[in-house]
């Protein structure tokens, strides 16, 4: 077994409940953004199919099923 990496030498802060809360919030917002690009059909954006059609080529080329 390799010894664990010493804590002081890495670029990340120590884990804390506060950090985990921010991490969770970030992931939630990022997933919402990804959803808008990849899947939204007006439910979240309230733009009808406008956003869906605008993102159309990106969706295909980012590998997301479209039609």
């Amino acid at each position: 077994m390799t010894a664990p990496v010493s804590t002081s030498s890495v670029a990340v802060p120590a884990l804390s409940p506060r950090l985990l809360a921010f991490a969770l919030l970030t992931v939630g917002l990022a997933l919402m953004l990804a959803y808008l690009v990849a899947f939204d059909q007006g439910a979240l954006s309230h733009s009808g199919m406008y956003l869906h059609e605008l993102m159309h080529d990106g969706r295909h080329l980012l590998g997301v099923p479209c039609h």
Partner: peptide, 9 residues
């Protein structure tokens, strides 16, 4: 929109 989608993604 392709550029927008890729950037936001």
């Amino acid at each position: 929109g392709l550029f927008l989608a890729a950037s936001l993604y």
